[in-house]
Amino acid sequence: MGMNSRKLRSLSIWIGVALAVTILALYAAIVRSTMNENPVSLLACMETEVSWRAWTCEKVLRHASLTDDQVRQLNQEAGLRFPLSMENPRHVEEMFELFIDRGVDINARDQETKGWTALHGTSMGDPAEKVAILLRHGARIDLRDSDGRTPLDLARLARQKYPTNPHIAETIRLLEEAQGKSPS
């Protein structure tokens, strides 16, 4: 009887080890495939996937460097607008700083939206905290889009169109305050 219980215990240990190795191998494959994702997909994954997958996407984004091509692509799309679109305020600030540290230009212009910067897009009604993040990190308020409008001009247009949006008044105040501080 003692011999059978030792065999059973030994078999249980081997099954446990095999199961752990299999799980680790599967997770390693998931990490490898996640590393091939573009930065924007990783940001979306952090917000929409189940917790273990979101955690993996966040770790890959934090620890893998952006390639020159990825930085160039992000800069052609006003790339700092992507972290600003995240819901989790902690992620917004952290990913924003990560993108800047990796070479994404805070004043990059989106090639598809009349040369808007992240500040142009954010000034149209996003929460004022996101405008404040951009301003804190040096977003230029004097840049004009292809129609000659600054972020403040767009915020004022948004106020006319959406007078009940609670974020626009604070955004205008922040932009006017920043304009008063900027050298003329």
Results as ranks from 00 to 15, higher is better:
L74T: 03
N75P: 02
A78Y: 08
A78E: 14
G79E: 04
G79I: 03
R81S: 15
R81G: 14
R81H: 10
R81K: 12
R81V: 14
F82E: 15
P83D: 13
L84K: 04
S85H: 12
M86T: 15
M86N: 09
E87C: 02
N88K: 05
R90C: 10
R90K: 14
R90I: 11
R90V: 13
H91A: 13
V92F: 08
E93W: 05
E94K: 09
F96M: 12
F99P: 04
I100N: 00
I100M: 13
D101F: 00
D101I: 01
G103A: 01
G103I: 01
G103S: 01
G103F: 00
N107F: 06
N107Q: 06
A108G: 14
A108E: 08
A108K: 05
A108V: 09
A108I: 08
R109A: 13
R109K: 14
Q111L: 13
Q111H: 08
E112G: 06
K114Q: 15
K114S: 15
W116D: 14
A118W: 00
A118H: 01
A118K: 00
A118P: 02
L119W: 00
L119M: 00
G121E: 02
T122S: 06
T122N: 03
S123N: 12
G125A: 13
G125Q: 10
D126R: 06
D126V: 07
A128W: 07
E129D: 14
E129W: 05
K130T: 00
K130D: 01
I133N: 02
L135I: 10
L135E: 02
H137L: 00
H137K: 02
G138V: 08
A139G: 10
R140I: 07
R140P: 05
R140T: 07
I141V: 10
D142N: 12
D142G: 10
L143H: 03
L143V: 10
R144E: 15
D145V: 05
D145N: 14
D145H: 05
D147Q: 14
G148W: 06
R149Q: 15
L154H: 04
L154D: 10
R156I: 09
R156W: 09
R156D: 14
R156K: 15
L157V: 07
L157R: 12
L157Y: 10
R159L: 14
R159P: 00
Q160R: 11
K161D: 15
K161P: 03
P163I: 02
P163E: 04
